[in-house]
Design a protein around this nucleic acid. Sequence first.
DNA 1: CTCGTTAATTTTGTCGACAATAAAGGGTGA
DNA 2: TCACCCTTTATTGTCGACAAAATTAACGAG
Lengths: 238, 238
Amino acid sequence: MSLAVSLLRLSTILNAMVLNVLVAEQPITNADKTFVRLRNDIVEGVVPAGSKLSEMELSTKYAVSRAVVREAINRLESCHLVERKANVGAKVVALTEQGLNELYQVRESLEGMAARLAATQMTDLEIADLNDLLSSHFQTVKTGETYYQEAGDVDFHYRIILGSKNNHLITMLVDGIYHLIRMYRVQLGMAGPRVTTAFDEHKHIVQAISNRDPELAEMLMRRHIQYTKKNLAKKLES
Amino acid sequence: MSLAVSLLRLSTILNAMVLNVLVAEQPITNADKTFVRLRNDIVEGVVPAGSKLSEMELSTKYAVSRAVVREAINRLESCHLVERKANVGAKVVALTEQGLNELYQVRESLEGMAARLAATQMTDLEIADLNDLLSSHFQTVKTGETYYQEAGDVDFHYRIILGSKNNHLITMLVDGIYHLIRMYRVQLGMAGPRVTTAFDEHKHIVQAISNRDPELAEMLMRRHIQYTKKNLAKKLES
DNA sequence: CTCGTTAATTTTGTCGACAATAAAGGGTGA
DNA sequence: TCACCCTTTATTGTCGACAAAATTAACGAG
């Protein structure tokens, strides 16, 4: 038991380290902080979808100059979280059915590729660690704590994306579209019966990766994402 | 004959319009112009791969303020053409074998998807126009003018990408990685025997799209890109 | 002569002010 | 009342100057 616990702790620590290496290179500027804060506010819906972003307003709100707000907004545009028009301003993207469809078409393709690559590129150690993460999720699901499932799911997908070892792919997904995916999930209210079935899907994906079976891993990941999308599409209708 | 010529002209005009709609929404700021100029200089190798970008230097060179240069550099970072480190500066990316592999893995997946979607989403008119473009390329190839082949190839791929009708996909490819692809092509010196075989591959892809055969279109596009990559990889070794 | 430390210089990050553009409001004529 | 034009207002684009950080150079100790 103590071994299992220590493994889980190690897993958590490693995960935090991996995220830090990706997200936070040593020097953090004000623009970085503003970017992250504003991004969170948008994903969480504190700044409503479709609303206009006033540079002056934000600069007073976050107590920084307009220049850093502008840089933050520019980066948000790269994430597809806001849309800018010259001499007009920036608006938070709207959550539409078409947008969801297009986003998930791309996500399915990219994460399918990530799973395929991960099946050949991940080290045995990383795969073992992924199994540990799955076990820790099983504990959580069993005890009925669905609250952290969303974060856990993000963690799971992160591992596989990083496991692809393709820096372009990693950047596109992590810096590119993942926050938009989270935005749909958070604002459409993810919870409910899918968490347990999703766990089974995760398990099968990990098995395919453990067996070094790229084609199966890709197919299972694509289906997993298709299911997720259908689930989201339902919520978007209402 | 006059009909064929007029069709070709129409094709060229339409193509220019499509590009303008994508690239240039009416108001163009100085930041836009600087971004485009600097991007071209990087792609063409005027600013060498791997070199450092000095904000002050560029601001004097392009006769704009540092703020404008900074915005341009930020956008170039989104295109994966430069890499920035806080408090240090921006460097033009280096052209490496690993980078080429990773880039083309992503490109194969995304453009494969584009071809698949285009087979179902393009209108009959757009497909007819694509065939016209192919004919015009045939004329060019037959007369031995390989100079414009690179631009023609870019045109061809653009059409299919736009034909996917998936805005996320379009943005990722056109604004995202396509200039980096061009950078590899230009700086490794694309020309030579592959232009004619590439033409045949283009022809087969268009046939698959005309037959509304998504799976075949994707497979042919993926292979076409694989061939291109092998060709580039050879040049990179020398 | 080499290494480590400190001072000088260069470069990036941040700020507030001004200019240019677009949106909002008021007025006139039909 | 509606449409159009002009004026006013607010917002974004651009600039130069200052602050902070990193790089380079100078210096001295071993």
